[in-house]
Design a protein around this nucleic acid. Structure first.
Lengths: 155, 155
DNA sequence: TTTTGTGCAAAAGTTTTGCAGATAT
DNA sequence: ATATCTGCAAAACTTTTGCACAAAA
């Protein structure tokens, strides 16, 4: 039989992490975590606010951003910035993959497996640098756009 | 003897690019270009505004941002976003290199040569994807910080 | 002279902050 | 009981936009 606290449940782990530091486990924090866990890939601050409101209509922007700060301090979440400059958050990089983004058509693909290894490998070997794959977005031109782009003399 | 228009001068080339498209070459645009060319690495929008003002005190934010848009359309400048979310601009990626950034100590290194090739190579071969190196920042933990970091259970 | 660019001022959009009241422990 | 959170409202900041005037070609 299972214990009431499932050790594999990320939400439960987060709750424990909060409590272990004397911080409180509130409905808002739970809602925000649930959204993050349920999201595949990135979520912007604004999306997070909207989705969290669906679960707890009282959730306000300030709470969301403050919670995200805490989550990031706890190492449970990390954020980067999209091409529009807005923050993009993601939880527990369970699926350790990066992204490939075409600057022309805006399409994206995931980078994982061999490709990921080709990128991280040399840096790890030569520099001892551990790449945070989930934070990685490589941009450029995809094969389709590469043909029909005449611009960018400098790139 | 040299021609009056030095073909190697990036400012002159920019001026020609503008005029070739029926766009005007103004003191403000010149000032902004000079700042960009004179900057090593990235400049944020706000920095650009301040520095351009030193050369032409009349320069306004709107002009700076509008000029940057144009420069980007012309392929003379590209931008990305720093970890604080602000835009970071850089001119003519003459030195085609990416950046490596440690999330803990914030130190950065350049990625070029073999390392750059290791990263771009597989993507080009397998996907025909042309990486925009000058837009690339790989983050993670450097060898020094990697040892002394206990946090980030998920990373 | 005509088209394009600039300055000004206000707006937009995301994220932050202060404070009084509410809540988890 | 009390230290921590939340909501609210206003502010902070960067970037964008509209419009009348100025300047380049």
């Amino acid at each position: 039989m299972k214990p009431t606290t499932d050790k594999a449940d990320p939400i439960a782990r987060a709750r424990d992490a909060f409590r272990a530091r004397g911080m409180r486990w509130t409905p808002q924090r739970r809602a925000i975590l649930e959204v993050l866990v349920g999201a595949s890939g990135h979520v912007t601050g604004v999306e997070l606010i909207e989705r969290a409101r669906l679960r707890d209509s009282e959730t306000t922007p300030s709470t969301v951003y403050r919670t995200l700060d805490v989550l990031e301090e706890l190492g449970l979440v990390s954020h980067s910035h999209g091409h529009d400059g807005r923050e993009e958050f993601h939880v527990w990089p369970v699926s350790r993959h990066g992204h490939l983004a075409c600057e022309a058509c805006r399409a994206t693909w995931e980078i994982e497996g061999d490709e990921a290894l080709a990128i991280t490998g040399s840096l790890t070997r030569k520099r001892g640098f551990v790449v945070n794959l989930s934070h990685l977005t490589i941009s450029g031109l995809c094969s389709e756009c590469n043909g029909r782009t005449g611009a960018n003399p400098g790139l």
